[in-house]
């Protein structure tokens, strides 16, 4: 049966079983490979996307349960038009292997949308579901603060 999903402002008709996770719809069906598979059990955050502005683990959202507009890393900025968070990521040279960073940025975007002056504890709280095996946490924290400051117009 075909499902209709809106991803990054574009409507797609997807002919896959309803229990296929959004992650694998994005990656294999739509070719949006910026969203990563890390664990499949909601334990690493590499597959984080936005569903109507909320951060969700796309490995846990079945195609039939997709509600509202989906935004992926490709939808928030591009190499020629970086989002404020992406600019901060580049400025702080955050990434090492980079595989988790799409999910980190998508998670941080939701944090900053609700709170543009997060404390260290609030950053910890928001970001601790996102694993980074390279250990870039210090630079992620610094980049979030830089982006927050930018958003506050400082």
């Amino acid at each position: 049966m075909a499902y209709s999903v809106i991803v990054n402002g574009q409507r797609f008709d997807v002919d896959l079983p309803g229990d296929v996770p959004l992650l694998w719809v994005l990656r294999d069906e739509l070719g949006l490979s910026g969203t990563k598979y890390g664990c499949g059990v909601s334990a690493c955050g590499a597959c984080t996307v936005h569903m109507d502005g909320e951060a969700v683990r796309s490995c846990q959202v079945a195609l039939e349960d997709v509600a509202g507009e989906v935004t992926t890393i490709e939808g928030i900025g591009t190499p020629d038009a970086l989002d404020v968070l992406q600019k901060a990521w580049v400025a702080h040279q955050v990434a090492q292997c980079g595989y988790c960073q799409s999910g980190q940025i998508m998670q941080a975007a939701v944090l900053l949308a609700a709170n543009n002056a997060p404390s260290d504890a609030e950053i910890d709280e928001a970001m601790s579901g996102n694993l980074c095996r390279c250990g870039t946490y210090g630079r992620i924290r610094a980049a979030i603060k830089t982006a927050a400051s930018e958003m506050r117009g400082e």
Partner: peptide, 11 residues
């Protein structure tokens, strides 16, 4: 780093 923009944009 030459890979930093790509790794910050999912590309």
């Amino acid at each position: 780093r030459v890979d930093m923009v790509a790794k910050s944009t999912g590309t």
